[in-house]
Computed example of a mutant assay.
Amino acid sequence: MIKVLFVCLGNICRSPMAEAILKNLLEKEELSKEVIVDSAGIGHWHIGKQPHEGTKNILDQNKITYEGISARQVQDSDWDRFDYIIAMDTQNMEDLRAIREKNDVKVRLFMDYVEGEESNDVPDPYFTGNFDYVYDLVTEGCKGLLKEIKEQNQLKEEK
């Protein structure tokens, strides 16, 4: 069982969007039993809340469920529970390193999985309001991450 954790600042926009999109891709490829996906935030402000309205709206438009997703804060135990911890921007990566400097979990920037993009950061639509652009980036990145997970773990090929 492979476990992926997406991390952003408050866990109501980018990381729950990535969680929902990757879960949707896994379901389409019948890999939901092989890969577990979760999301968390650096901060505690939104614990227990559903995704932001903008995130819910863009996921609804694309017929992707976010049922059961609610904000939580990153915990020290996440390093022991997850195989991949994916930071949505460079500040999240720095914050994760400050929480736990030494770890053997694969901690990467989300944008490492988006080809052709120069930025290291997925812009935070909580501040920019541009949920459409973020949705496109996150969809592309989730496809890239899934490709890597399948290759590294010898999971079945795309249908």
Results as ranks from 00 to 15, higher is better:
Asn62Trp: 11
Tyr126Asn: 08
Leu155Trp: 09
Lys106Thr: 14
Tyr133Ser: 15
Ile21Cys: 05
Gln61Cys: 05
Glu157Ser: 15
Gly48Ser: 03
Glu157Arg: 14
His52Asn: 15
Gln91Asp: 15
Glu151Gln: 12
Phe6Asp: 00
Pro16Asp: 06
Lys106Glu: 13
His52Ile: 01
Val138Met: 12
Val105Trp: 03
Cys13Val: 06
Glu118Tyr: 13
Cys142Phe: 01
Asp83Gln: 10
Thr55Trp: 11
Glu148Gly: 00
Pro125Glu: 06
Asp124Tyr: 09
Leu146Phe: 05
Val35Pro: 05
Lys159Asn: 15
Gln50Trp: 00
Asp121Glu: 09
Lys3Pro: 00
Gly129Ser: 14
Phe131Arg: 08
Glu117Ile: 15
Tyr113His: 07
Gln154Ala: 14
Met17Val: 00
Glu148Val: 09
Ile12Arg: 00
Leu109Ser: 02
Asp132Leu: 13
Gln152Thr: 14
Asn24His: 14
Asp60Phe: 09
Lys3Asp: 10
Val107Gly: 00
Gly10Ser: 07
His44Thr: 12
Lys143Glu: 15
Asn62Lys: 13
Phe127Gln: 08
Lys147Arg: 10
Ala20Trp: 04
Ser119Asp: 15
Glu19Gly: 05
Val114Glu: 03
Met93Ala: 03
Cys13Gly: 03
Leu59Glu: 04
Val74Thr: 05
Ile149Phe: 08
Glu53Gly: 13
Lys63Phe: 05
Phe127Val: 12
Asp95Gln: 10
Glu115Tyr: 14
Lys63Trp: 02
Val138Glu: 12
Arg72Gly: 06
His52Pro: 04
Gly144Glu: 06
Phe6Val: 08
Ile86Met: 04
Lys49Ile: 00
His44Ser: 15
Ser39Thr: 10
Tyr84Cys: 06
Val105Gln: 10
Ser15His: 01
Arg97Leu: 14
Phe131Leu: 06
Gly68Leu: 04
Leu146Asn: 03
Lys150Gly: 07
Arg108Lys: 11
Gly10Pro: 06
Pro123Phe: 10
Val122Glu: 04
Gly41Cys: 08
Tyr66Lys: 04
